[in-house]
Amino acid sequence: MYKALRIGNLTAKLPIIQGGMGVGISLSSLAGAVSAKGGIGVISTAQIGFTEPDFDRNPLEANLRMIGEHIKRARKLAPSGILGVNIMVATQNYARYVKEAIKNGIDLIISGAGLPTELPEIAKGSRTKLVPIVSSLKAASVIFKMWDRKNNVAPDAIIIEGPKAGGHLGFHPEELEHIDDAAYDEEIKSIIALTKDYETKYGKEIPVIVAGGIENKQDMEHYFSIGADGIQVATKFVTTEECDADIKYKQAYINCKEEDIMIVKSPVGMPGRAMKNAFMERAGLGRIPIKHCHNCIKTCNPAETPYCITDALANAARGNLDEALLFCGANAYKEDRIRTVQDVLDDFFA
């Protein structure tokens, strides 16, 4: 059994958040569809303006413009649904992205790929709910303590992204090669216990959402049994009709085998999970020079980075697979056909 997911004054009928996937994988079409069906749909702001004609000249302006545009489009699909954006802490001009999303009436901001210690100050005075992503008790402790001390607030919810998630991961590579599910369950329980302390201090509910490799109702109910309030799912939504990515990207998931999934080193400075392909083979042989910098990540040095992550991820969204970084979750190989968002939701809530 499941209950509605309440984040402050927002109530999602289904306790599921669709994970944010950039560049261009979870935009307004996917987010709007999930929101319309009773979940929480999430738009990734990572280089969200990559299809705009002025993107190469003015990436920041193109991205900020399309944050508003995609929120507007998703609202048309789900007028009464709940919508979020995923904004990476590592993003250049992070504060501008947060303020633009708030200006356009977004319901919640989910933030990871770094610790969003400054998020409460940036969002001060808004009604937007703030949801940090953590992978460890240590990271959760830092966020709770800093938000409490500097801003006298606590998160509105917290997402725990486990080692089976896709994209950028908050783990050491060796931890990802040898995943101990039982040990990580204990980490989740510790984070939940910490969250309870701050619920008591602030007199509010702080739901805990678990993410990473959640495949079916049995997985979901396992996490509910250890104290989680909701789940976040991303990979399973890629192979849906509503997903914003090119059909070739979706087909790559359908065609992939378990042995095709690997841990890669991202230019962001974090390990990630992706599929083997011609691009990853070339990247393994040496640096792929950057033709044009898109000013995406704070930590990127164009003269040294192994390849341009913007180009690699944009190529994935466009279906140019031989030039693409194909991020995916640990269970991507289990997706074997194109379905609908409703089909995916039925895996958990039918």
Rank of each mutant, 00 (worst) to 15 (best):
I179G: 02
H168P: 01
K189T: 06
E161V: 09
L176N: 10
A165Q: 07
G162E: 01
P163H: 06
D180M: 11
L194P: 01
L176G: 11
E186F: 00
P173S: 08
G167D: 07
A165I: 02
G167S: 11
P173E: 10
I179C: 10
F171W: 08
E187N: 12
P173T: 12
I191N: 01
F171M: 11
G166I: 01
H178M: 11
I188C: 09
L194H: 05
I188Q: 07
G167M: 09
F171L: 09
I192E: 01
A183G: 13
T195V: 13
P163M: 03
I188E: 07
E161R: 11
I188V: 15
P163K: 04
A182C: 09
E186A: 06
G167R: 08
A183H: 10
G167V: 03
I192R: 00
I192V: 13
I192C: 02
D181A: 11
E187C: 03
A182S: 14
D185R: 08
E175K: 04
S190L: 12
G167K: 09
T195D: 09
E174M: 11
S190I: 02
E187D: 12
S190H: 13
G166E: 06
E177H: 13
I179R: 00
I188W: 03
I188F: 05
P163R: 10
G162R: 03
T195H: 06
A182R: 14
A183W: 05
L176R: 13
H168K: 03
L194K: 08
L169R: 11
S190D: 13
F171I: 05
K164R: 15
E175G: 07
L176D: 09
L169D: 05
A193R: 15
H178F: 14
E161P: 02
E174D: 15
A182Q: 14
T195S: 12
I179V: 15
G170Q: 08
E161W: 02
D181V: 05
D181R: 03
E187V: 12
G162Q: 03
A165G: 13
G162W: 00
P163E: 01
A193H: 12
I192P: 00
K164G: 01
E174Y: 15
I191E: 02
I192F: 00
H178G: 01
E177P: 04
I179H: 06
E175F: 07
L194V: 10
H172K: 15
K164D: 11
H172T: 13
E174C: 09
K164T: 10
G166D: 02
H178V: 10
E174Q: 13
K164Y: 10
G162I: 04
G170N: 08
E174A: 12
L194Y: 07
G170E: 02
L169H: 10
Y184C: 00
D181G: 00
E174S: 14
A182W: 12
A183Y: 04
D185V: 07
H178E: 15
T195G: 08
I179W: 04
E174K: 11
